[in-house]
Simulated assay, not measured.
Amino acid sequence: MALINTEIKPFTATAFHNGSFVEVSDQDLRGKWAVVFFYPADFTFVCPTELGDLADNYAEFQRLGVEIYSVSTDTHFTHKAWHETSDTIGKITYPMIGDPTGEVTRNFDVLREGQGLADRGTFVIDPDGVIQAMEITAEGVGRNAAELLRKVKAAQYVREHPNEVCPAKWEEGEDTLTPSLDLVGKI
């Protein structure tokens, strides 16, 4: 799984978005920052807490110019039904991609072959369609939108300041590092 710094693969899928079914492709992820957020299945336990957390932080992602795309191997019809029956999922306004064929999930190497479910995979994609950060967690380990926001901000900062890097626990506005021979062995 060596997807960091690789370009996303072509795909086309149908998403449930703001009350409608819309087509989404890899081309929609280009020209802006994107987060592709895979989860195992609709109508489950940890998944709605994660998707709700993203919904609660969606305005901040949007302020940063980032679009969120959640993806499971459920259909777009299932996403619509879940959206209409769950208060937590009902607050989602980002696209919910249905991937019943597993094309998108395979492209990001998070399909559990034989199960037809996605692992909990998170991918931060730059405007050129290149994966800048990724995280895969075990079934029972939920993710945190605030930490994802921090990673997006760091990735954006490094892109805008190519001679600087963000140290551990870096937060927006804090000092960065400029790699050089002078720093070797002094941190």
Rank of each mutant, 00 (worst) to 15 (best):
W82F: 10
E135L: 14
W170N: 03
E103V: 09
F11A: 01
A34F: 00
L181G: 14
P100T: 02
L51K: 08
H83G: 03
Q27H: 11
R150L: 04
T105H: 08
I8L: 08
E174Y: 12
Q115P: 13
E160R: 03
L183V: 05
K169G: 15
M134E: 13
R143E: 03
N5H: 14
V184W: 07
L64Y: 10
L181K: 15
I8R: 05
A145K: 05
V36M: 00
K151H: 13
P100L: 01
R63K: 13
I97L: 08
Q115R: 15
G98R: 04
H76Y: 13
L148D: 02
V110H: 07
V141R: 06
I8E: 07
P40F: 12
D99A: 05
D175V: 12
H161A: 00
M96T: 08
Y58N: 13
V110K: 01
R106W: 07
E23I: 05
N5F: 14
N163A: 15
I92D: 06
A2L: 14
I125T: 06
D26Q: 10
F77I: 01
T105Q: 06
T85K: 12
L111R: 04
F37Y: 12
I136C: 05
G185N: 01
G102V: 01
A118R: 04
S180F: 00
N18H: 12
Q156S: 06
E7K: 15
G98Y: 07
L51G: 08
V124Q: 00
D74C: 01
E174K: 12
I125S: 08
D99C: 06
A15N: 06
V110E: 02
E7F: 14
D53S: 05
M1R: 13
V24R: 02
S180Y: 00
S20F: 15
T6E: 10
A34D: 00
V46M: 09
G173D: 05
N5S: 10
E139Q: 15
T6K: 10
F11S: 00
A145W: 09
R106N: 06
F108E: 04
A41C: 09
K32Q: 10
N5C: 11
K9W: 12
K153H: 05
I97A: 07
G142D: 05
K153T: 04
P48I: 03
I4V: 10
A168P: 09
M96W: 08
D128L: 15
F21L: 07
G173Y: 11
G31D: 00
E113V: 09
W33S: 00
V158S: 05
H76K: 11
E135Q: 13
E7D: 12
I131T: 09
W82Y: 11
H83A: 07
G185P: 00
A59C: 08
A133T: 14
Y94M: 01
T78Y: 11
G129K: 04
R150C: 06
I125E: 09
F123Y: 07
T12M: 12
D175T: 14
P127G: 01
F21E: 07
K153L: 03
D128V: 13
H79L: 01
G142M: 02
F108K: 05
F61L: 01
V152W: 03
A59G: 11
L51Y: 12
V130F: 07
Y58A: 13
E164V: 02
A118K: 04
A118S: 08
Q115V: 15
A168L: 09
K32D: 06
S72D: 05
D175F: 15
E50Q: 06
Y39V: 01
F61Q: 02
L117P: 03
R63C: 10
A81Q: 07
V165M: 07
